[in-house]
Design a protein around this nucleic acid. Sequence first.
DNA 1: ACCAATATCAAGAACTATTCTAAATTGGTT
DNA 2: AACCAATTTAGAATAGTTCTTGATATTGGT
Lengths: 142, 142
Amino acid sequence: MVDNLTVPSPETEIPEEVSGLRMTRQRREVYRILLQDRDHPTANDVFLRVKDALPSISLATVYNCLEALVQHGIVRQVNFERESSRFCPNVAEHGHFHDRSTGVIHDITFKPGVNLSDFLDLPAGAVITDIELTLRGQLGSI
Amino acid sequence: MVDNLTVPSPETEIPEEVSGLRMTRQRREVYRILLQDRDHPTANDVFLRVKDALPSISLATVYNCLEALVQHGIVRQVNFERESSRFCPNVAEHGHFHDRSTGVIHDITFKPGVNLSDFLDLPAGAVITDIELTLRGQLGSI
DNA sequence: ACCAATATCAAGAACTATTCTAAATTGGTT
DNA sequence: AACCAATTTAGAATAGTTCTTGATATTGGT
Ligand SMILES: [Mn+2]
Ligand SMILES: [Mn+2]
Ligand SMILES: [Zn+2]
Ligand SMILES: [Zn+2]
């Protein structure tokens, strides 16, 4: 039950090149980790996980790989307040719901066909190119 | 032409105490600066501006004051990506539109009567307590 | 296969925003 | 005035991230 078709499943082979970015061993492994558990890990989380496959990788390389993946539109960087950045392989437009009681971060999508100006008072003539939405709360009552 | 009634105008006297926070000289001046130009300044911006009235104030104090104001719900801290935090005296629920061509940050409000679940696919049973919305783009065509 | 050019990686230093620490100052209260 | 708690100050410390530099790896042309 995959909820988003724009994310490759973790089993599919990651090709030699993705969106114009050559997939080195390190980049491939970093990307694979992101596809494996879609829990929005931090750079350090990724570092710890990727060490299983590449024990000699450095944190700097993880940062480099993540930056390359983000700049080629393969991965999204997600910031919550001033916490460490988190990374998400879902590059479709989506927001995040942060469950305060469990700490789990859920992807949330816009209902099809909705328009920003349907629910927001936008400045006249505003052309929106990028949306960032974060919700916080709980799943179910306490 | 004030666009939001939950923000005191810059002329009104700031009382001895606001929302349970004693207004010291430094806190009052920091708050006054935020009310004066609602341009979402950074802590350092506030520091530079507040020096006119209090030349011996320290950056640490500006951070202390901003933290106190935020924790008492008098001021909102706003984060864009990994940039320095910005501060906003509008504590009503609102999002932000960041005009990429001018750098100006506009407050945006939700249209009255709209419900989150009207336009978002939320996880079942999600109770939302906090919304953070940032839009980026341009005012008018290039 | 060899070589040179280019890209990537690794390690640690550097950087920036923010928080912490500890000493001085302030302001209100007995 | 002496006291006490809160606040302010200056500078050190911290955390996340980026930068620098030299080592490795990969590519494409011969
Ligand atoms: Mn984590
Ligand atoms: Mn600024
Ligand atoms: Zn996500
Ligand atoms: Zn605002």
